[in-house]
């Protein structure tokens, strides 16, 4: 893939919709199923991933000319691990309660395929600015997915939104149960697929 020709805005939208990490690329599914029980969890992990993605992308695109091709992957891993450790330490220090709620998932960002993949296909070929906006787009796309899942599960399962009571009772406790994450992600993917087919059909008919 040659250097991108997209504008910064297009890069962000690309990450949010066309190449949404959760629903379209189907990468980083573990947190999407595991801890999307509340909006707050989704938001916080989204922020953490956004931070790691942006900083790693910028770092790699900054030093891309100096990376020896044979140690490309180890360098990526090292970069990601460093930024994950940083965000892990910061969250543990300043938001201890929320950090505990997420368990080991913050530290597991290091193994999220989405970040390595963006470094490999985008950051190592593009300028720092483009990589920055791509990172923002991917991070926001991930956050968007996590918050959507969290919102559905929290509202339907607990009757609350961000901890505030909105319905007053619990419509479907099933959605808070851990296994419901799988079902919901499956449904959401199907919805994205359906929208895409309808959109394509319309476009064809229009042409």
């Amino acid at each position: 893939m040659p250097a991108t020709t997209k504008t910064n805005f297009q890069l962000v939208v690309n990450g949010l919709l066309n190449e949404n990490p959760i629903f379209r690329l189907a990468l980083s599914m573990c947190p999407a199923v595991g801890i999307s029980t509340t909006v707050a969890n989704g938001l916080l992990l989204g922020v953490a991933v956004l931070f790691v993605q942006v900083f790693s992308s910028c770092t790699i695109s900054l030093i891309k000319d100096y990376i020896h091709p044979r140690i490309r992957i180890p360098t990526y891993t090292l970069t990601i691990a460093t930024w994950v450790t940083v965000i892990d330490l910061v969250l543990a220090a300043y938001l201890p309660v929320a950090y505990k709620a997420m368990g080991i998932f913050v530290r597991l960002i290091v193994a999220f395929a989405i970040i390595t993949m963006r470094l490999e296909v985008f950051a190592c070929r593009n300028t720092v600015t483009a990589s920055f906006w791509d990172g923002i787009g991917m991070g926001l796309g991930f956050m968007f997915g996590m918050v959507t899942l969290g919102a559905v599960r929290e509202v339907l399962g607990m009757g609350t939104f961000l901890g505030y009571d909105v319905i007053g009772f619990r419509p479907l406790l099933f959605f808070v149960l851990p296994a419901a994450g799988f079902f919901l992600v499956g449904f959401m993917m199907a919805v994205f697929n359906y929208v895409e087919t309808v959109y394509h059909r319309r476009a064809k008919r229009g042409a």
Partner: peptide
Amino acid sequence: ITIALTISCLVAGLVIGTTFLFT
């Protein structure tokens, strides 16, 4: 390669160490 990796590790260590000191 060795030199490149050593430098990367040193920089990474520096970043983590600084954060650790602050947090």
